[in-house]
Amino acid sequence: MSVKTLTIDGKMVTGIAGETIFNVAWNSGVRIPRLCHVGGVSDVGACRLCLVEIEGQKKLMASCMTNVEEGMVVRTNTERLQSHRRLILELLFAERNHICAVCVMNGQCELQDMAEELGMDHVRMRYLFPKLEVDTSHERFGLDHNRCILCTRCVRVCDEVEGAHTWDLKGRGVNSLIIADLGEPWGQSDTCTSCGKCVQVCPTGALFSKGRTVGEMRKDRRFLKYIVTAREKHQWIR
């Protein structure tokens, strides 16, 4: 295993070859914003919040998809990056319906946290407010498309960890939607094992457990670490 030494926000840090900038940064206490990344499943580089500047490279790179290199000089929090991140969040908030006051995840939502952390306090664009369905056909869980940010965490955890591949995306562009099987109501899905992993990884109130009222939903992601450690290291420890 070769070790790479690099600088992140002026700090000398080390990582292992093949590790992403994102992971190395977080391990050394630099918290790069993210929404599509969730530890334990593959990365897709879709939300673009984790973009960083790398010296000598014209393009901004998604830190969750870029491996560390010896001597790299990375900046994760410049003025430019901050303003890009705020604008991306504004786009997200304007895309569907993210009214925190009436959401089960209020106070526990990663989208909300991101907005607070990055200082995005108002939206200067027109809200698109599409009228989307809320699927409550599953006996224990619900899916509110209006809160979905299309991060595909649920798709990945269902495919990679549970192995069911119930979820996928249909359509394209702004009309994309999360679907179960052939787009039938979740409760009728043949492939769903009702394991609830998707609910736990969803960053917003799009996937939720039934029976919780506004602000009550808590999500627990420790299971992912447990499974990944079990798979990779054959250690069954919490």
């Binding site: 119930t166 359509g171 394209r172 052939l182």
Partner: peptide, 17 residues
């Protein structure tokens, strides 16, 4: 989906993309 041994959601995903 059954014959190609693919998840149904992936088949619909492709067909609608």
């Amino acid at each position: 989906a059954r014959k190609l041994r693919l998840p149904p959601s992936r088949v619909l995903g492709v067909a609608t993309f």
